[in-house]
Design a binder for these strands. Sequence first.
DNA 1: GAGCACTGC
Length: 815
Amino acid sequence: MEEEEAIRRSNALEKDDIEYLRDDILDEQYLFEGVKLTDAEEREMRYKKKIYELVKKRSEEDETQSEYRIPDAYDEEGHVNQEKRFAVSLQRYNLDSAGDKMNPFAEQEAWEEHQMGKASLKYGSKNKNQSNDYEYVFEDKIDFIRDSVIDGENLDELHSELPDKSKEKSALEMLQEERKTLPIYPYRDELLQAVNEYQVLVIVGETGSGKTTQIPQYLHEAGYTKQGKVGCTQPRRVAAMSVAARVSQEMGVKLGHEAHCTSEKTILKYMTDGMLLREILSEPNLESYSVLMVDEAHERTLSTDILFGLLKDLIKFRSDLKLLISSATLDAEKFSDYFGSAPIFKIPGRRYPVEIHYTKAPEADYIDAAIVTVLQIHVTQSPGDILVFLTGQEEIETADEILKHRTRGLGSKIAELIICPIYANLPTELQAKIFEPTPEGARKVVLATNIAETSLTIDGIKYVIDPGFSKVKSYNPRTGMESLLVHPISKASAMQRAGRSGRTGPGKCFRLYTLHNYHKDMDDNTVPEIQRTNLANVVLILKSLGIDDLVNFDFIDPPPEEALLKALELLFALSALNKLGELTKVGRRMAEFPLDPMLSKMIVASDKDKCSDEIITIAAMLSVGNSIFYRPKDKQVHADNARMNFHLGNVGDHIALLRVYNSWRECNYSTQWCYENYIQVRSMKRARDIRDQLEGLLERVEIEVTSNLNDLDAIKKAITSGFFPHSAKLQKNGSYWTVKHPQRVHIHPSSGLAQVLPRWVVYHELVLTTKEYMRQVTELKPEWLVEIAPHYYQLKDVEDPISKKMPRGAGRAKE
DNA sequence: GAGCACTGC
């Protein structure tokens, strides 16, 4: 009976299932060797082995090649470059596949060998492998070598000087007591003296030293706020807001008065770096400030880099302005050099030691390696949660599935493993799961993107698994194409990731690459954003500040000259600059909007077509990005159907976005409506915020808010006024050819027009993934191009040889 | 018929 059933089931097995099955057997044998199984468990195991043997035997008969899981392709712009991935792991992979060709059953043999090894390990050899230098976390698949320990800092204080909560104290007094326990407190007077003495100071302080909350308060206490505000910039909005809230609590004032926000009385202001940048536009000398602190400068955001250039110049004219640059250790010298050898002031952080482990040999499949490592930690290491860094949503979903599968069925034999995925596009309700405390006896494993590297901290993490990759946005100024590619992280990122394990106690970090990889294949620092992004917006801001010689602007790291020229070229085409490179009236109006120039131009142009109301909605929706539609893996069909409702009539993606927003507004910004239509509430709220802001700005540039919803052509024309450089023409084979700077592109499959293929389109952006895709596409009448941008398009550009052969409308699906 | 790290205005 059991035999027959096994044969029947083995016939139905897919390749993936076989791998799962084998993994199950291996897991089970490894994890529970020596543990007495119940009868049922033993039967189950016997049964699984039977199926596996049957499948194995059959595959031998078929003489099929055994398959090794190939590491994900590392795509480069336009092609796949395997070599560029960690060379060593590649080497190993090549060796393996060479072996494959000679022996199609290599994998099966390896499995048998493995089983043999198991038998001998049982009798004691396991322990012999362990020594102090080599810590074998598991002998099975991945060997780790303990390499170093990042020392903890300032720990005595942490234990001894906690505030005495036994005495009766007011909340404010308690907060004041707590302030004194921060690592920065003993350095207060020394720091103030240094600020007094030098105009620019580089402050090096680990997270947890209290620098962000305390330094502005110290400056206030020392009287700097009598001459002007103390401003402090953060790369992220949430950080700025939460710090402001904390500080106003400590100062015993209401948020928005003494700390943060805009009123006359504001003395401490926490803001994003982008906000300060825009403030310089209206107040070039920043007269209302006496001190500026650029926090988290090592993150090198686009705005931080621009601020550096502007502030370096500004302090020459404002000798009374104090500048503090706060950074993590690695970049401090560089900042100091840039600001004329400014002194560096070091503040210890509050961190526990972290042990760093490297793999002994490179791992070709890092997802698999990460999963194995999770299971090993779970079985062999003391309690504490695990954080795994992966590159994207898809990887996280895959890892989630495999982990669930592998732990299922183990039931009560191992402690519970709670799997929590986290990435930016995950709906908020699901994100909350990672902050729930782990129940007694269970262990939490967080599968995260880079979001966990800087943007959020999770308590209770003791183990970090770092495969060493992340997705990096890059920009090709020649083609104007953006791409999001998997790339090895920098050493600085690796340190940051490791540090995430030592926040609440001593931690361990398992790096799924070798020490050799770390030294040879990883850059010291991540390439700053300014060198891998579209600079159109930056150039417009600098131009409106009267900075004309951009090539010689004092960037701390200059962007590629080609990117600057491309940006100038675009601004000229949009009529924001004249032939002399001077800002025009249109350009001045555009600069008022905190958007990419093509979006700003679209808004400014909407005045003419009397559809500014619709256009600012579209601009807001486009700025939110591609996180409007929610498409869970198990409900893709429903989600796609819901999405197509907004595309009825093949109106194009821009109008579809407008319909989404208007429908949401009509039902009173209902959350329920979002759920029903597979729309992300969070993104919609953000779109609403941006839209409100844009509406306010319309008034400033004296554009009336007018609605022209019935004339879709007017709306499309306004879109074209901003995006005419992004036009493309259909080719016979269904691909498109961009009109200027010709290259082959395709409509992204998520577009409502992907099946429709209009002859002419205007697109929002080009992205390179598996192909060159246009994302957010709307149909266009070619004569508009000549009408709207006669300086850019001539009749010959839009003459359409196809149209002479095909009647109008051919090549399109029925509407 | 593909796939999207993060952030900001």
